[in-house]
Design a protein around this nucleic acid. Structure first.
Length: 595
RNA sequence: GGUCCCGUAGCUCAGCUGGAUAGAGCAACAGCCUUCUAAGCUGUGGGUCGCGCGUUCGAAUCGCGCCGGGAUCACCA
């Protein structure tokens, strides 16, 4: 690309003019600021120490050198230490022609190499998904798409947490108060039904704890001795002993939950290549720990528990096997990492997990390293922030969660109302209209979440509905629909869009603006991949759509009488449409062709 | 208490690998539909970039110290 070439040539220029190699790190090419004439800018301050001249003189000299050397450069200007370069219009027009020939503009071709494993979602099967899970799922899905666009092979995996004491709590509550209720008889999605019993358990449990504390127990003692928790623990014991009755109920209830989850996933547009279940993987890792013990990397304490000592690394000791020989969460994660490494030989493993588990993943990586695993350095925790409500953090037990299904329904309803008010659904088939409402509702939700830097906490106010105007998903979708409307009209006139644009045309400022933005799309895709950040794509595509709307509003396209200019504008329109669609695919958002 | 993350306009967020006058959207106000979709476009107002010190020709951006918010440090997952 021209950017890298220019940087290189600047280096050569410095050597030619001042006899010194600037070496690494010096030159930096940036976009020229809006109000200043120019396309790219070189900040020459760092080069002054080679030239031993004023910034202005240095900039002028390098400018002259570039003007002579680089045929694409039309002119330059110098403001203080800033060297602003103007490229010839035919450079931009050539770019337009070349970009239009690409199959998938902005994306790299798939390379044949080891895959990247992206783990996300990882739900518990004792309650329905909420807004936090939505952020996780959207991030995981989008990251997978972004990595693919960067030429990687991606394996998307889901590790379902289908066993453990929390599941037993729902089971116990169901046994006690369920009366044989089923999703069908209750008219509820399976995950919501199970969630109901989880809440029920916690209500009764809370009362028990309260009563015990009245009798003088501390909270901690009460929580351990409450009859309900003892019963739940007994169910867990039976489950681990493979008691048939317990296992049957467990399976039945989990299947209900999966049916519910699948519906939620379908609405979200999320899929996986492989699903793991903890009930199958929770014993993994013991072998690994044993080997570490044999090699004296790990140590056993007197009571038989096994630990990794991370104090030299600035962390604490970490338990890997309890004194009774059973394993913990960390043990399992060590085991699944090893198992995935053996099956897929991934180039890296990315875990999309909330930032509350930052410590866990630091420890995981350290232990893998201690155990001498070469892949330890290729384990990445894609850590994202909490979704907060105006009152603070969402808490399942206190019922202050925003339910995923309810939220999606609401988004759909808002999309329908808004669209109908605008009269845009009037001439649509009911099925087309339904698809549109879904696309817009989900587009608004997804964009709202993905435009925020993943690592930051974000705020969601349920009282204010998610916007459809301004920097939003529907805004971008609308721009796309508008583009298609233009292209449809153009098609009616029988124009052939496939031929190349004449590269000796002169560009209007707004036309060039869009070309400059389009030029940045491949970079945005790459940066999003490097930083594991869909937000970069979201902000990019908003900027592009905004730019197109300005162009659209100011410059008539179809009224243009000069056929070459008409072709240019339509080509511009078409490529923008492609870039928007491509970017939105990376975000997992559908783009309607009319709305 | 230790470690990590965050603090930018009334609100939600960009910008953070140091660069020119700190940007959007929402909300408020004022314009633009007999002309390609007004879910749009244009304009006005709104800022000690938490505070202080340092590094630098140059700091929202880097370093240190405070202040404020969050997460985490289980024989839970």
């Amino acid at each position: 690309m021209i950017a890298q070439q220019l940087v290189k040539i600047v280096g050569e220029g410095v050597k030619h003019l001042y006899g010194q190699e600037p070496g690494t790190g010096l030159p930096g090419l940036e976009k020229t600021k809006k109000e200043i004439p120019g396309d790219f800018t070189i900040v020459v301050f760092p080069l002054v120490r080679f030239s031993r001249k004023s910034p202005e003189t240095t900039a002028r000299e390098i400018g002259e050198y570039l003007l002579e050397t680089v045929p694409e450069i039309a002119s330059f200007n110098v403001i203080k230490g800033f060297l602003n370069l103007v490229l010839k219009d035919d450079f931009w027009l050539e770019f337009l022609n070349q970009a239009r020939r690409q199959k998938k503009f902005g994306c790299l071709k798939p390379r044949h190499e080891d895959p990247i494993i992206v783990e996300y979602s990882s739900p518990n099967t004792n309650k329905p998904l909420h807004l936090g899970h939505i952020r996780n799922n959207l991030l995981g899905h989008s990251l997978s798409e972004i990595l693919k666009a960067n030429g990687h092979r991606v394996i998307r995996v889901n590790l379902v947490n289908d066993r453990g004491i929390h599941i037993c709590k729902s089971m116990l509550a169901y046994m006690k108060w369920g009366n044989g209720e089923t999703p069908l008889s209750a008219g509820m999605k399976g995950d919501h039904l199970i969630g109901k019993y989880y809440v029920l358990f916690n209500q009764y449990f809370k009362t028990e704890v309260h009563d015990l504390m009245e009798k003088g127990l501390t909270e901690e003692e009460a929580e351990k001795q409450a009859p309900l928790i003892r019963e739940a623990r007994e169910i867990l014991r039976k489950w681990e002993a493979k008691d048939p009755e317990t296992r049957d109920l467990w399976k039945k209830m989990n299947d209900w939950v999966y049916e519910g989850f699948n519906e939620t996933y379908r609405n979200l547009g999320i899929t996986f290549d492989k699903t793991y279940y903890e009930s199958n993987t929770y014993l993994l890792g013991k072998e690994l720990v044993q080997k570490g013990l044999d090699a004296e990397i790990l140590k056993e304490k007197e009571d038989g528990s096994v630990w990794a000592d991370l104090r030299e690394e600035g962390l604490d000791e970490k338990l890997l096997l309890r004194s009774d020989g059973t394993s913990v969460y960390m043990t399992q994660d060590l085991g699944t990492a090893q198992s995935r490494y053996e099956t897929f030989h991934p180039s890296s493993m990315i875990y999309v997990v909330g930032n509350e588990q930052n410590y866990h993943f630091d420890v995981l990586r350290l232990i893998l390293k201690k155990l001498g695993k070469s892949y330890a350095d290729h384990v990445f925790h894609c850590s994202y922030g909490m979704v907060e409500l105006p009152e603070g953090k969402m808490k399942s037990r206190e019922g202050t969660v925003v339910d995923a299904d309810a939220l999606m329904e609401e988004m759909y309803a808002t999309a329908e109302t808004t669209t109908r008010e605008l009269g845009k659904a009037d001439e649509m088939e009911p099925s087309e209209a339904r698809e549109l409402f879904h696309a817009i509702g989900m587009g608004a939700l997804k964009y709202f979440i993905l435009k925020v830097d993943p690592k930051k906490n974000m705020l969601f106010d349920p009282r204010e509905s998610i916007d459809f105007n301004g920097n939003t998903g529907p805004f971008i979708q609308y721009t796309h629909a508008r583009i298609h409307s233009l292209l449809r009209r153009a098609a009616l006139t029988g124009l052939d869009l496939s031929s190349n644009v004449n590269s000796s045309l002169t560009l209007l400022p707004l036309e060039k603006e869009i070309l400059k933005k389009l030029y940045l799309f491949p970079e945005a895709v790459q940066q999003a991949g490097d930083e594991l950040s869909p937000a970069i794509i979201a902000n990019y595509v908003y900027d592009l759509a905004k730019g197109f709307n300005q162009f659209y509003q100011e410059i008539p396209v179809l009224k243009e009488e000069d056929p070459e200019k008409l072709l240019l504008r339509l080509a511009l329109t078409q490529l923008t449409g492609l870039a928007i669609r491509q970017a939105m695919v990376l975000l997992g958002i559908q783009v309607p062709t009319r709305m």
